[in-house]
Amino acid sequence: MFEGGLYPYWIVIFLMMTGLYVVISRDNLVKKVIGLNIFQVSVIMFYVAMGKVRGGTAPIEAEGFTIYSNPLPHVLMLTAIVVGVATTALALSLVVRINEAYATIEEDEIRELEREEEA
């Protein structure tokens, strides 16, 4: 079951579920953003793991090396990292604005304030 070659994917699944659980279960908005980050990182890890070839080197032509890792998924993840940074920055700036508007970043307290507003 626990094959050595597949262990990166077990880590991916663990990180993914951790991230998703943090996003769902935490009321603190900053913690939610952290959870979101862990979730995104798991997918980055997934791509990096799939591109790695056992015994392969960096894909640079040199004498004596014939097995290379696949560089494409790694390059794709550069873009995904940029996307993740942009998302985090936007999320945190929203959290700052929410803190200014509600004087709290706890979701349950915000919901309470919104309910009072509606009543």
Binding site: L36, Q40, A91, L94, R97, A101, I110
Partner: peptide, 19 residues
């Protein structure tokens, strides 16, 4: 100010979707 919380809610769900 509800626009801010709605936007963050969409951001969290949208990012999960995108991922």
């Amino acid at each position: 100010r509800r626009a801010l919380t709605s936007s963050l809610q969409y951001l969290v769900m949208g990012t999960i979707g995108g991922t």
